[in-house]
Design a protein around this nucleic acid. Structure first.
Length: 275
DNA sequence: ATGGCTTACAAAGTAAGA
């Protein structure tokens, strides 16, 4: 009986929320998501620009920040029924925050916001502690969702900077990046195992065929990111079946890479019909 | 040539990103 409504979620690695607060506000005004997940906020919770979000209607805020590095934040127009943070790998890093809300007044939705470790330069877990941390994080992710939300038929969304570009067309050159952290076979296998363990759907690739190149990150070092286009798809939106089968579209905001002093990542959006 | 850039930090050079 209740009318169909939509729920629009966005994810963006902002690379300092304080430095780019005006860009975040511009994005929210232009694209009007119900909820935005930010990563690499690089901001302790007591310094988070809460007021700037409240002024434009995103006053429901869940923070898991730390000084200097990492940090995630979820800002929303819809009130939260619950929030949680989990310290993956027990390192004290701020890499996860989850919120539960009920935009339709019927069935809850839980949204997980992740910042997976980058993994350093050397793709060998035996000699690179950062890479082994990344692998362990992905293994813990798989275990955390195994027999969880999907098995129970729950409505859950997982977004964030997962720091892995899994498909051949998620990087500018599959052949040249096979030994580069973010696209090595071991990481791709671990990310796929996490996707399978939670019975998640990669919502973005459900709308963009795997034959088509799609990136969300371009290095600051290229002289002209558009012209060289050496990007990677590191930012993801996953959903459990009840939502995935009602996803109506995705959007990648490429223009944000051209804004003044941009993040090296661009926002990714997905819209779902809910009842 | 993927690292040539960019960020935070009890502020000059370090660590980190990917």
């Amino acid at each position: 009986m209740s009318p169909i409504q939509t729920f629009k979620v966005a994810t963006w690695n902002i690379n300092s929320v304080r430095l780019r607060i005006d860009q975040v506000r511009r994005f929210l005004k232009d694209h009007q998501p119900d909820l935005l997940c930010l990563q690499e906020t690089k901001c302790p919770d007591d310094k988070f620009p809460t007021k700037a979000f409240k002024e434009i209607g995103y006053g429901n805020i869940a923070l898991h920040g730390q000084r200097g590095y990492h940090g995630v934040a979820t800002v929303s127009r819809v009130p939260f029924l619950d929030t949680q943070k989990y310290d993956f790998c027990k390192k004290g890093d701020a890499r996860h925050v989850a919120v539960t809300l009920c935009p339709s007044g019927r069935q809850d939705i839980t949204i997980h916001n992740f910042y997976v470790p980058a993994g350093g330069d050397e793709p060998n877990p035996n000699i690179n502690e950062k890479f082994s941390h990344k692998i362990e994080f992905l293994e813990e992710l798989a275990g955390w969702f195994a027999c969880g939300p999907a098995a129970n038929g729950e409505r859950q969304i997982l977004v964030g900077d997962l720091n892995v570009a899994p498909l051949e067309n998620d990087v500018w050159s599959h052949r040249q990046l096979l030994k580069v952290v973010s696209h090595t076979p071991l990481e791709v296998e671990k990310l796929q195992a996490a996707l399978d363990a939670g019975n998640w759907t990669d919502v973005v690739r459900a709308h963009v065929p795997p034959e088509e190149k799609l990136f969300t990150w371009w290095s600051y070092r290229s002289r002209d990111w558009r012209q060289s286009n050496r990007g990677r798809r590191l930012d993801h939106i996953w959903a459990t079946q009840p939502l995935a089968q009602n996803s109506v579209g995705i959007d990648v905001i490429f223009d944000a890479r051209d804004w003044i002093k941009p993040s090296d990542h661009v926002p990714v959006l997905a819209e779902f019909e809910i009842n």
